[in-house]
Design a protein around this nucleic acid. Structure first.
Lengths: 125, 125
DNA sequence: TTTGATACCTAAGAGTTTTATGTATGTTTG
DNA sequence: CAAACATACATAAAACTCTTAGGTATCAAA
């Protein structure tokens, strides 16, 4: 009996991920036009080689909040009897996405200087 | 009447800084051997050109926690009648610092890929 | 038919940070 | 020389975000 090991590297101790969830959601939805919650968790898991695994308890309430803030819009679709709720970015959401991504990029640069990191020699497989 | 503007750029919306406080403290103390709380806030402010301003309400409790976890050691000094509490990293703290900094570097690389950021063209003055 | 994957959701609790205080000394400036 | 500002410590309530732990239901595969 064999167990397939999908990802070699560990999850991040999740404290670092705090505060990045909205940015991640906005970025993905800007690129993909339209995604549903479960799809977002899987896409993030794949794109990060399993290093970031969004929990549904964090994701769904955040999606709901972003919708009520006017950043996202929704449309429901039925796959057989199963419900799927697709999210898209509104015009407001696109603006916010730009701000958030820029802010994160600057934050990374600031932290790189502060922690004296050399990203050129960094190896992450 | 003139108001001196020290920093041109804004503070980060602080959610991003969450989860990085311990890493920052450990890194600074590894470099500087010995620092006191207020000094840490000022050093971080200077090194980040005012972009990251640690609040005392977050810093002091964290320093106390790290001490009780055995990551930091303290020694009190008197400057006139004023008390100064110096913190240093323990052997344990040094190990932790390495782990934390590595983890953060990997996290940054993962986020760079996920958000499709090109750090080469990033301009932060 | 049971397990695992898909797909949504909520609520209690944990953890971290902000905001608001409090105390006190030392320095600068009008 | 008094007021304002900087230095230096500290705590506590509230806010915010995420984890953990549950719940419901459909569909596919073993």
């Amino acid at each position: 009996m064999f167990v397939e090991v999908k990802y070699k590297t560990m999850l991040y101790s999740s404290e670092l991920i705090k505060g990045t969830l909205r940015t991640i959601i906005l970025k993905l939805l800007c690129d993909q036009q339209k995604m549903y919650g479960y799809e977002i968790t899987q896409t993030v898991k794949d794109l990060t080689k399993g290093r970031i695994q969004l929990t549904e308890g964090a994701l769904y309430p955040t999606l709901h909040a972003m919708e009520s803030e006017g950043l996202l819009t929704t449309e429901v679709e039925y796959i057989g009897k199963r419900v799927r709720k697709y999210y898209s970015v509104s015009k407001q959401g696109k603006e916010k996405a730009g701000e958030k991504i820029n802010e994160f990029a600057e934050f990374m640069e600031t932290m790189r200087v502060l922690l004296n990191l050399d990203l050129g020699t960094l190896k992450v497989q």
